[in-house]
């Protein structure tokens, strides 16, 4: 074929330009460590990467919600533990109060101690978290949920004439029955709070029957019973027995709630494991979709470098040839 002089120059230049542009492209991919720099590099992978990135972000949200839920439940669990411990102390203190060997003075000193325990129990029920939220107030976490008629530690408060019960409560509840939930997995919204109403106010025994009042009512009644001289108190024995059993019921109630909280915490542990595994999976998928195969990229780079060198050398060689050199 006949070849024109400009063809020799043009095709030489074109070859060099094309190889240079390919080199630059390879170098850009290497510098960014990405197989897909712009969607047109691989439109399907680019779109999929976008969706996987969002799925991973959602999964990260679940992981962060899990850790938040875990914090909330730990606090809840520890406070329920305190309430149980306090009640066990109370039971240990009064277990011998019905015994004939105890004097009125002994029982009065027990009552003094019980007043401290009652204050302790109310304080536990009014626990606030780090942000000042009352944890047992349902949705109304900015109001103190448990308010007693008076300061129970005050030893001069006389024994009540009437029994405390849900219709005549010693401590009133100002929260609501709201239970806060967090999305901890795509299909799991987990309760991260317990309403104080269900824990302290609506006490049920092991068979599920409601007691006549809150745990505070039972405890106040116990204090009243202990403070009255036994000689003039015909109902001492029956009152004492019932109050003991109601306090025992509270242990049942609090224990049930506590074990449900514990179950949720262990569920969070396993959710955390699976969420992390899913995260690893997403990262692997993203890496497959986007990351550069260094070996093949470097091979390409070195191949293109050789091509460019050859194109440059041959251009200089061929363009230097001319018959005019010999005229």
């Amino acid at each position: 074929m006949r070849v024109s002089t400009s063809q020799i120059f043009d095709s030489g230049t074109r070859g060099i330009l094309r190889t240079q542009s390919e080199l630059l492209n390879t170098q850009n991919h290497l510098a960014a460590n990405k197989r897909v720099l712009v969607p047109s590099d691989d439109p399907v992978a680019a779109a999929q990467a976008l969706i996987v990135t969002q799925s991973k972000a959602v999964n990260d949200l679940y992981i962060s919600n899990q850790s938040y839920a875990s914090d909330q439940l730990s606090l809840l669990e520890s406070k329920l533990g305190s309430a149980v411990a306090t009640t066990q102390n109370i039971l240990a203190t009064v277990v011998g109060a019905g015994n004939g060997s105890q004097t009125d003075a002994n029982r009065k000193s027990m009552a003094v101690e019980l007043r401290q325990r009652l204050a302790e129990l109310i304080a536990t029920a009014n626990t606030q978290d780090g942000s000042g939220n009352y944890i047992f107030a349902g949705f109304q976490t900015n109001v103190q949920p448990f308010v007693s008629a008076d300061d129970p530690t005050n030893a001069s408060i006389p024994a009540s004439a009437t029994q405390q019960s849900s219709s005549n409560p010693y401590v009133t509840y100002h929260g609501d029955q709201g239970v806060r939930e967090l999305q901890v997995d795509s299909s799991r919204a987990m309760a991260v709070s317990e309403s104080g109403d269900g824990v302290f106010m609506r006490v049920t025994d092991s068979s599920g029957a409601l007691t006549s009042g809150s745990v505070f009512d039972s405890l106040k009644n116990m204090i009243d019973t202990l403070e009255k001289p036994i000689a003039t108190n015909a109902t001492f024995q029956s009152d004492y027995t019932q109050e003991m059993s109601e306090l025992q019921s509270f242990l049942d109630t609090a224990g049930r709630v506590r074990s449900s909280v514990g179950a949720r915490m262990s569920e969070l542990d396993s959710l955390g494991t699976s969420s992390s595994a899913v995260n690893v999976q997403y990262e692997a998928t993203l890496s497959n979709l986007q990351d550069l195969d260094y070996t093949s990229a470097l091979t390409t780079l070195s191949k293109q470098k050789t091509q460019l060198e050859v194109a440059q050398k041959s251009f200089v060689l061929i363009s230097g040839l001319s018959l005019f050199n010999y005229l």
């Binding site: 959602v58 949705f139 709201g178 806060r180």
Partner: peptide, 20 residues
């Protein structure tokens, strides 16, 4: 009415679900 329900996030949970 959900009076003083300041810690209630039921609707926020539903808003968050819109993402998926």
């Amino acid at each position: 009415a959900n009076t003083n329900g300041v810690a209630d996030s039921r609707n926020a949970v539903l808003l968050g679900k819109l993402q998926t």
